[in-house]
């Protein structure tokens, strides 16, 4: 990476930094921290999280998939993903019902980006994992249970 830019990033902070980043074209104004959906990430229950995401009552859909193992060896690193064959998917999110805050991550998919995102999340215990998808402006959902085996027994 360009060293000069790295130094700019290193020394900047707070609001000044956001300005620099925006000027450098690294972030678009509409993507500043202010946009981070605090209400959705702070919500505890599934219902409150969905409400904060503007997706109060998503329909179950067979065209949405939660990808992930049936069992995770370590709840701190659970590979999960969302994929969908629905048209015009503009947003996907991963929710974990039994976590202290259900929402783990959400993704805005610009046109051309496929509805197929994989990541890794922490799970405190065995739980249903939900994939939320926004297609043609409407919300759809699918679920899968992932078991977390007890970790921390050394070895």
């Amino acid at each position: 990476m360009n060293n000069q830019r790295r130094n700019v990033l290193k020394t900047g902070s707070g609001a000044a930094l956001m300005g620099i980043l925006a000027a450098a074209g690294i972030i678009k104004p509409g993507m500043a921290l202010a946009d981070w959906n605090k209400a959705a990430f702070d919500a505890k229950s599934m219902a409150d999280t969905l409400k904060a995401l503007g997706a109060a009552s998503p329909a179950d859909s067979k065209d949405v998939q939660v990808t992930g193992p049936d069992i995770a060896e370590n709840g701190a690193v659970v590979p999960v993903g969302v994929s969908s064959t629905l048209p015009n998917v503009t947003m996907v999110a991963i929710l974990i019902e039994k976590n202290p805050n259900a929402l783990a991550a959400s993704f805005v998919l610009p046109e051309g980006t496929e509805a197929n995102v994989q990541t890794r999340v922490k799970m405190g215990q065995t739980s249903n994992v939900y994939a939320l998808v926004k297609s043609d402006g409407k919300f759809f959902m699918a679920t899968k249970e992932i078991k977390v085996t007890l970790g921390g027994c050394g070895g």
Partner: peptide, 29 residues
């Protein structure tokens, strides 16, 4: 945020329950 040349191809928001050393895989046309 991930960009291809100057175009945003993925914009993500994470909470603290994304794993340490976050991993992301996605595809674009």
């Amino acid at each position: 945020i991930a960009k291809h040349n100057d175009k945003v191809v993925l914009a993500s928001e994470f909470g603290p329950s994304v794993s340490k050393n976050p991993y992301l895989a996605f595809k674009f046309k």
